[in-house]
Amino acid sequence: MFLRGADGPVLQLDVPEDLGPFGGDHLLVFHCRAHNDASEAEFADDRLVPEYWDAPQLPYPRPFWRVLLQRQAMLPTVEPEPSIRALPLTLQPFVDTPNSRGLGAQTFKVGGTPSWAQDPEYYTCACGTDLEYLCQVPEGMEFEVHPGQPEQPYSVGADTYGLFLGNEVYLLACPSHCDPAAVWPVNQN
């Protein structure tokens, strides 16, 4: 996994092969460094609206983020994004044993059981398939930037960027892979 910035993904990783319908996919998370807000879902007939990944995120006419889940993706770029300090991470298997409330470990993880900060949230993709939990980014996880980069609004510090106001982020994806962008970022605090 490499952490990247506004021109490239903030976060990218190869999903482990044994992770259900997403195994072997390549996950990319982009987030605008000039806008730092929470996402807000729009619905039509109890489903996310068609092309929800492009739906307005008020007060903005379009989302300030993009999450892609690519099948048979090309290799990640070797050149790091210049504003974010690229940090390699190694995913390691672990047993995510739910606690007495049915919540998993509160950490960065791919797969396992979500550790919902509030009540669990469930969404149905515009294609009619129920979204499934893919990944969790813990509350307050910051991505270090190189000195001299513009400060991100509502970020913890001038030398870091965050995702969705630093909230706990749960990525729910369409197991039908109806579109590479069919991933919804749930934000909770």
Score class of each variant (00 low, 15 high):
Lys109Trp: 10
Leu58Trp: 09
Ala126Leu: 05
Tyr154Thr: 00
Asp45Gln: 12
Thr97Phe: 08
Thr160Val: 15
Gly112Ile: 07
Thr97His: 13
Val78Gly: 03
Thr107Trp: 03
His146Ile: 04
Val15Trp: 10
Leu69Trp: 01
Glu132Asp: 08
Ser176Met: 10
Tyr60Ile: 00
Asp7Ile: 14
Gln106Tyr: 13
Gln188Arg: 03
Leu68Pro: 05
Glu142Gln: 15
Pro185Glu: 00
Tyr170His: 13
Val78Pro: 00
Val78Phe: 09
Gln92Ser: 14
His177Ala: 08
Gln149Asp: 08
Ser176His: 14
Pro63Gly: 06
Gln149Leu: 08
Asp159Phe: 13
Phe43Arg: 12
Gln152Gly: 03
Gly162Asp: 12
Ala41Glu: 09
Lys109Phe: 02
Asp14Val: 10
Asp7Met: 11
Thr129Trp: 11
Ala105Thr: 10
Ser176Cys: 09
Pro76Ser: 04
Asp96Tyr: 15
Pro80Glu: 00
Arg66Ile: 00
Ala6Gly: 14
Leu48Asn: 02
Gln92Trp: 13
Asp119Pro: 01
Pro98Gly: 07
Glu151Asp: 12
Gly104Val: 07
Ala6Cys: 08
Tyr52Gly: 00
Met1Asn: 04
Val186His: 02
Ser115Met: 00
Gly23His: 10
Ala105Cys: 02
Leu91Tyr: 01
Ser176Gly: 13
Glu81Val: 05
Cys125Tyr: 10
Gly104Leu: 14
Pro61His: 14
Leu172Asp: 01
His35Ala: 08
Leu163Pro: 06
Val145Cys: 12
Leu87Phe: 09
Pro16Gly: 09
Asp45Phe: 07
Cys32Ile: 12
Ala105Val: 10
Gly102Ile: 03
Pro93Gly: 04
Pro59Val: 10
Thr160Asp: 15
Tyr60Trp: 12
Tyr122His: 15
Val145Asp: 06
Leu28Lys: 03
Cys32His: 15
Pro56Asn: 05
Gln57Met: 09
Leu58Lys: 12
Leu75Thr: 10
